[in-house]
Design a protein around this nucleic acid. Structure first.
Lengths: 217, 217
DNA sequence: TAGGAAATACCACAATAGGGGGAGCGACAA
DNA sequence: TTGTCGCTCCCCCTATTGTGGTATTTCCTA
């Protein structure tokens, strides 16, 4: 059987070396290189020709996400398996979008590492159940056609909100709209009551998330 | 420990009964019902109050996809674990859109069935590596991600912003993040400098418009 | 080992926002 | 004609935010 060629990008020296020995010590696997960062990834991958890359997310210099992006753009056939300490959901999303093929935790046992690598090599995408759930939820969220809620905002109130999402202060809005500062405040109070919020950030957030305004600029 | 209540919808009599005995024979699990189709699913679920539903895709009458859709619309809190023989990409997509929480193959071993049910119950989304890969591919295909500008925000700063877009005040963020109010303020100052803004609304607006944070929050 | 980056925390003062109230004016409809 | 609605403006007082500092700790790297 052909060896599965694995490259490691991991800044933690101890883990990097452990993985190196684990992979090289497992029949059917060989580690073509183990690097502390992916600043020279393109050169190293060109030289090593790995099938699977084990990529840490938290790294100095080019981080794991940027690394995946770079690698997938140059070597689309290579499968990248992300690994991280946390269920950092920000990163999970970014990694998936960047083209990662799987996502595992560093708490993974050696046997599971090997299984995950084999799985990725064979066209699978190993990931923990909780990560998979996040992906599904995101998927479902983006598919659904949301029914716009109607908060009965008046034209003037919508105008205020438009200035608000541009980051203007009440004073600036007053000037831009040609009305007094106190009137702006009155409108905002009414808006807060209608949107059931009690701060400008909440209002802006709600407006942008629920796409309450059609024209933003 | 509370039992995990499982209902089965599976037209194959042999598999249905096997699963029934498997679940009832496992401590911590009880099978509230095993049905050959989901034509009476609403009545049966109302009666059985299962936590998790094991749903076959290929069924006579109402098929699994339609079943999930129906069930999730009536009982949104119930988790549905799909099972199928094939890796049919269309079915996977439809099932996910219909609200399925997991997707396993019928070639799964009894132990893996139990693990998968437990995982779904605990908020995970178990799926085989190959199905996960399909999901990721669909994901990457369907959600175009525009090139994010990189403002070099640190993880902590992103965390602050996440709370910010939820409309939290500095005080609330401090409590939520377990750090002091003054530290929150320090982070915000640094964020403002990096984003070139000078108010919380501007920051929130920029974050949401430029999608600087993952959609997970 | 010196230096930087990240996270932590505090102080002081000015500026802005939030919550409560009241009130006038024009339009339009019952 | 009496309401109601939308828009306008003002006051008072408190809470929160913005801006400018300083400072310690930890971790990592040149």
């Amino acid at each position: 059987m052909e060896n599965i060629r694995v490259a490691i990008f991991e800044d933690n020296k101890h883990l990097r070396e452990s993985l190196y020995y684990l992979i090289n010590g497992t029949p059917g696997f060989s580690c073509t290189g183990a690097y502390p960062d992916c600043n020279d990834a393109v050169f190293q991958i060109t030289k090593d020709t790995p099938d699977v890359i084990l990529m840490d997310i938290e790294m100095p210099g080019l981080n794991g996400i940027q690394g995946v992006k770079l690698i997938k753009s140059k070597f689309p056939q290579v499968h990248v398996l992300m690994q991280t300490i946390f269920h950092d959901e920000n990163n999970i999303f970014d990694a998936i979008c960047a083209g990662a093929s799987g996502y595992i935790l560093k708490s993974t046992t050696p046997a599971e590492y090997i299984t995950a690598i084999k799985d990725v090599y064979n066209g699978g995408s190993p990931m923990t159940g909780s990560i998979a759930r996040k992906v599904l939820e995101l998927f479902q969220k983006n598919i659904q056609v949301e029914a716009k809620k109607d908060y009965q905002l008046t034209p003037k109130e919508k105008e205020m909100l438009q200035f608000m999402v541009q980051g203007k202060s009440f004073k600036m809005i007053a000037e831009a709209a040609g009305i007094s500062y106190e009137t702006v405040r009155t409108h905002m109070k009414n808006i807060y009551a209608k949107l059931h919020v009690n701060s400008n950030t909440e209002a802006v957030s709600k407006v942008l998330k629920e796409k309450l305004l059609s024209i933003f600029f």
